[in-house]
Design a protein around this nucleic acid. Structure first.
Lengths: 241, 241
DNA sequence: GCAAAAGTGTTAATGCTACACCCATGT
DNA sequence: ACATGGGTGTAGCATTAACACTTTTGC
């Protein structure tokens, strides 16, 4: 049998197929607190609960393409750091029908986060409270600005928890922290981002030296302005080369 | 609209749905060399090429259940260390139709690997040659026992490469190495596994001390036998508690 | 000058590397 | 006795943590 004959004989309807969706964990650090963007559900199931923005994967687009399309359509964003997180496939995770969801997480600087909130009014900011430390993992609690706990839909608390865990794990051997900062930033801002994600205080001189020794930072010569104390030097993330 | 009305109105046929498969990267370290189990394809597409064992996800089983079912049916294995790896979703990764594949990787001790080879005669052993080092990543070359390169089907070289990368990354902060060893093992055997996965030689005293200081090892008091030199102490992996 | 935060030097502790050496077993 | 690999002690090196200190700005 030739490949061509085989393709004609292959029956794609032989297996009952699930739907496949992509959900986005859009994260940032806002004023020293880890945060994510959520949407309040306006339909069943989980009407009124809070969910991650997401949508179905079209038959003619890759998973990565679907993630970028949703990033543009749901959050009006281009060019964010984005990476596949995990695929959630419990049978009853969606009561409507079988839906397998591929979770992606994206990292945005605070300013872009604010712009997304303005451009997409159905998005809401949620602070993330991480009730575990280190490599423990588990779900995460989302809180609104006035301190109320936002009940989450589906298995989205697990997705948020896994995103936080991944972020913590990659923090000090990869450049993910720079995706959460503007192009130019102070060492203090970089340390604040690290501390917010890790949930711990870090030693200032040790942190400075570690970052500078790594060779990822490039001093711009410019300085922060507006503060009533010594202005800090602004650095830039040195991208390969 | 009530939840019940919504469910009745929801039309699961509204989107054209992809097929979803699970592919298994079954790995071990055989005589000091990383290895995987492959099957030679007997159908189009990629007739004659080598592929990871896999199969479609049924509509009424979770992804994890599908992985375990395939582990039992394809490799005749129960109780291996298994974990989800990554989801591959390029549009044309399978020429038949749209198939999204969730890759899992499983770790087996050498003896279980040999047993799987015996119980499932369509499986073949492939040594893995890793042409990159550290955190670089990329595809991997599979070689048969007599040194020939085995051409791989689909994107399975990428799956093997990602599995090796994940294994390397988790090696020294998690207990994955113990999944590649029998219940009782010598420190030398543990070091051999580390060296095979990392592709480097390690310092013996430093390795010993690091492992023992970690508290994951429990001496059994028993000793290896059969060698013409001083017998080594056998240790056991201390599982939580 | 003072407050506040940036930025630096110095020391102590820790962990890792390398090397040398001793130990126990089968032949 | 000897060859072989298991197992241990010690000294040197590098990396990191902690603390104290100096510097620079706005008010």
């Amino acid at each position: 049998m030739s490949e061509r004959e085989f393709l004609q004989a292959y029956d794609p309807a032989a297996y009952e197929r699930p739907s496949v969706a992509v959900d986005l964990v859009l994260m940032s650090v806002i004023d020293g607190v880890p945060a994510a963007l959520l949407m309040q559900r306006e339909d069943h199931p989980y009407l009124g609960r809070w969910a991650l923005p997401g949508g179905f994967v079209a038959i003619d687009e890759s998973l990565d393409e679907a993630a970028h399309r949703l990033l543009a359509s749901k959050a009006r964003m281009q060019d964010a750091y984005i990476e596949q997180l995990y695929t959630f496939g419990a049978v009853a995770r969606d009561p409507r029908t079988r839906i397998i969801s591929v979770a992606y997480f994206a990292l945005l600087p605070q300013a872009d986060f604010a712009a997304a909130l303005k451009a997409a009014p159905d998005l809401a900011l949620a602070d993330l409270v991480v009730p575990w430390s280190g490599e423990a993992g588990g779900p995460v609690v989302a809180r609104s600005a006035d301190g109320e706990t936002l009940p989450l839909a589906f298995d989205h608390a697990d997705m948020l928890g896994l995103a936080m865990l991944r972020l913590r794990g990659k923090l000090d051997y990869s450049g993910v922290a720079f995706a959460l900062l503007p192009e130019r930033f102070t060492l203090r801002a970089l340390q604040d981002v690290h501390e917010a994600i890790l949930g711990t205080k870090l030693n200032k001189p040790a942190f400075r030296r570690r970052m500078l020794d790594r060779g990822w930072l490039e001093p711009t010569g410019e300085r922060e302005s507006g503060a009533s104390f010594r202005p800090a030097e602004l650095y830039r993330h040195r991208t390969g080369g």
